[in-house]
């Protein structure tokens, strides 16, 4: 009796819908949201305020409507900074993924719980810890009077200190370090989903380790890689503290360029417009990655 079965199924669906219903009126739930909404309101107001500022005709106050601020962004100094930002964000994303995949693999497969915990904490550290302190660490290590340069000088291997920091490479290193946990943790959870049996099957069919990594592990990790990559990109594109502290004012990523518009120039509407551009880039990347993931899900599911 297929028809009977069908009604039974639809009944069951409704039953489970019925189970989730509350008996409490909705208004009470809204009331419970109120304190948090109150807390987040200034943030929303500030965002809207900035959006409004970006289309102001006056650079110092909200006054009339104009796209002047956006038009003025098409100057070489902003475009250079935009290009630099995209370049650093992209290259740091690639490096981070290359490090995060093996790292996640090692953490997931480590059998001793205490080692796993230790590695987790170490990887988590860059995310939690004050960026200022971490940049102290890098300066101590790589700065002109840092550990490496001092050692090299003492050993007589170089005559003048090497410039390891306060250039693009230094900033890149900082970006990689601070965004590493953002990639490792999501990858760890997608790594756990790669069933041991797939790999055993591949190996049974004669695939080498490299082969099954390329043919099995990587395709299964793809959604995780896209997700982690987009988060890392978005995070690094909007970096501020790292280029400020490790770039020595020479590496003007967007965040710094926008700050400079405010601090010496008092070009508030320009800064707001620059900020909107940055937000747009980040939103695009995140939307694109969501779309890519959902597309690969559809294909995997069929």
């Amino acid at each position: 009796m297929p028809a009977h079965e069908q009604t039974l199924q639809s009944l069951m669906r409704h039953q489970s819908a019925a189970r989730v219903r509350r008996w409490r009126p909705d208004s009470a739930l809204w009331l419970l949201c109120l304190p948090a909404l109150l807390i987040i309101t200034p943030f929303l107001v500030a965002c809207l305020y900035m959006l409004r500022f970006s289309v102001s005709a006056d650079t110092g106050s909200i006054n009339g409507f104009s796209l002047q601020a956006y038009a003025e962004l098409a100057q070489p100094y902003f475009l250079r900074s935009l290009w630099l930002t995209l370049k650093l964000a992209a290259s740091s994303t690639v490096i981070v993924l290359m490090l995060a995949v093996p790292l996640a693999m090692v953490i997931v497969t480590t059998r001793s719980a205490s080692w796993r915990r230790l590695m987790t904490v170490v990887v988590l550290l860059p995310m939690i810890l004050n960026l200022l302190i971490q940049s102290y660490g890098w300066i101590l290590l790589l700065g002109p009077a840092g550990v490496i340069n001092t050692t090299l000088l003492q050993l007589g291997m170089v005559e003048r200190p090497l410039i390891l920091l306060f250039n693009e490479k230094g900033v890149l290193l900082g970006l990689v370090q601070t965004s590493l946990p953002l990639a490792v943790f999501p990858l760890m959870s997608s790594m756990r989903a790669v069933s041991q049996e797939y790999l055993e099957a591949a190996s049974g069919l004669g695939a080498s380790h490299w082969r099954s990594f390329v043919d099995i592990t990587l395709p299964l990790l793809k959604p995780g890689l896209i997700g982690a990559g987009s988060i890392v990109f978005a995070f690094n594109a909007s970096a501020f503290a790292v280029p400020l502290l490790l770039g020595g004012r020479r590496v003007r990523m967007l965040g710094l360029a926008i700050r400079d518009m405010i601090s010496p120039l008092f070009n508030w509407s320009g800064a707001a417009a620059g900020g909107m551009v940055l937000i747009l880039i980040i939103t695009l990347v995140l939307v694109l990655s969501t779309w890519l993931v959902s597309r690969s899900d559809v294909r995997g599911g069929s």
Binding site: L8, L11, M12, H14, Q15, A18, R19, R21, W23
Partner: peptide
């Protein structure tokens, strides 16, 4: 009754968790 027959809903109405 089978699942979906409304027996639990009836009990929850008696208990007052559903109106």
């Amino acid at each position: 009754g089978p699942s979906g027959c409304g027996k639990t809903t009836l009990l929850r109405i008696i208990a007052g968790f559903e109106r």
